[in-house]
Amino acid sequence: MIQSSLTHRLKDQHRAITPIIIKLNDRQIQHHVIKGKWSIHEQIAHLAKYQPVFIDRIRKILMMDNPEFERYSAEDDDGFEIYCAFTTYELLKKINTDREIIYNLVTKLSPDKLDRTGVHPKFGKLNIVEWSEFFVLHEAHHLFAIFQMTHTMK
């Protein structure tokens, strides 16, 4: 069973990005607050790029028995650079569009489908509810990083 707190975060958590960055200009969003670390824009590009990866993983879990996944790394994903080339506005639109897919995919599954599992290289066998929890916690980590960078610039 999927808890209402997870359902709400899947639906709306990503919407925190806009209010966090609303007062920043493009130069600030692109700025590397810490040398060698991602900018706010790159954090958002990572969140946007990971959503299709997550959708693909959920679909594989639904089609295959216990598929095994490699740990996702943006640095090893050629698509990450492509996403970095989009404007922040375009990335936010992509996040909204893909999030609707994720929300509908996960929240409309029957309990037996939610129990299907896939294997994470660090956390082992996770069912779809656990994968979804991992997804929103990962996203929350990046939202906090964006919040910190935003307030470091002020």
Rank of each mutant, 00 (worst) to 15 (best):
M1Y: 04
Q3P: 11
S5E: 14
L6P: 14
L6M: 10
Q13L: 15
Q13G: 01
H14A: 08
R15I: 02
A16I: 05
A16G: 04
I17K: 08
I22D: 09
R27D: 13
Q30A: 15
H32P: 06
H32N: 01
H32K: 13
K35E: 15
K37E: 11
W38H: 08
E42C: 07
Q43Y: 00
I44W: 08
I44N: 07
A45M: 10
A48Y: 02
K49V: 07
Y50G: 00
F54E: 04
I58T: 10
R59M: 06
K60H: 12
K60P: 01
D65K: 02
E68A: 08
E70P: 00
R71F: 06
Y72Q: 05
G79H: 08
F80W: 07
E81I: 03
I82Q: 11
I82D: 09
T87Q: 11
T87S: 15
Y89H: 13
E90G: 06
L91S: 12
K94F: 09
I95T: 13
D98T: 06
R99Q: 10
V106G: 10
T107D: 07
T107G: 02
T107V: 14
K108R: 15
P111T: 07
D115R: 05
D115T: 10
R116M: 10
G118R: 02
G118A: 05
V119S: 10
P121Q: 00
K122A: 04
F123Y: 04
I128P: 15
I128R: 09
I128S: 09
I128T: 13
S132Q: 11
F134E: 02
F134K: 13
H142I: 07
L143Q: 00
F144T: 15
A145P: 05
I146D: 01
F147E: 14
T152P: 00
K154V: 06
K154A: 04
K154M: 04
